[in-house]
Amino acid sequence: MSDENGTPATLRGPRPEAIRFFGTTWVDHDGGYGARRIAVSAGSLLAVAVSCLVLRFAYQGLAIAAVGAAVTLLIAVMFAVCTALAFGHTWGAFTRRPDPERQASLRGLLAIGFLGSLAAYFLRSLTEAPGEKLHREEYEAARAAADKRASRRTGNPSRKRRT
């Protein structure tokens, strides 16, 4: 019997956190984990390709509007910088929890640099479920702490002999 995340109901202690598209299959690499990784990699690569096509249409729109070389260059540089920053931010979020305040302040930049976020997601999904390393470290630390707490408790303390 399993809960909604696919975690066994008999599991004691901390529960693993679900990862988008993977649920808790990342814990034991079961439940179609390999197929999910392939699907996520293919999907994110397709999203990168479609995003490049959208950016090309935007660039052609600028050319049709004849806004000038300076504006076209500024927009191209803006997209390149935002894409690079979004890639770095997304890649870093797979290894450490991002600060919520910083995340909120970067929301616009990440939206403009969406291509970088998609590329980071694609590259990470080639080796693991995106965020798996971070979740695994947190889960193993929580399991170790729970095991340590459980090992200290042996029996009913009220039945303990007093000397």
Rank of each mutant, 00 (worst) to 15 (best):
L53G: 15
G68Q: 01
C52F: 07
G43I: 02
G43A: 02
V54Q: 09
R56W: 14
Q60P: 06
A47P: 04
V48I: 10
L74V: 09
A76W: 09
G43V: 02
A76E: 11
L74R: 10
A70Q: 08
A66I: 04
S51K: 07
A49R: 00
A42I: 10
S51N: 13
G61P: 05
A76V: 12
G61F: 03
Y59L: 11
L53P: 04
Y59H: 12
L55W: 06
L55V: 07
A47D: 02
R56L: 15
T72Q: 14
Q60R: 14
L62D: 00
V71E: 03
S44C: 08
C52V: 09
G43K: 01
S41F: 05
A63E: 14
I75C: 14
A58K: 03
A76R: 07
A70M: 09
A69L: 12
A58F: 10
I64Y: 12
A65S: 05
I75E: 08
Q60K: 13
V48N: 00
F57I: 11
A42H: 00
L46N: 06
A58C: 09
G68T: 01
C52Q: 08
G61S: 05
A69F: 12
A58I: 10
G43N: 02
F57Y: 13
T72R: 15
A76T: 13
G68S: 04
A66F: 08
A58G: 12
G68W: 02
A63M: 12
S51R: 09
A63I: 10
G61N: 04
V54A: 14
I75N: 08
I64W: 14
A42T: 07
V67D: 01
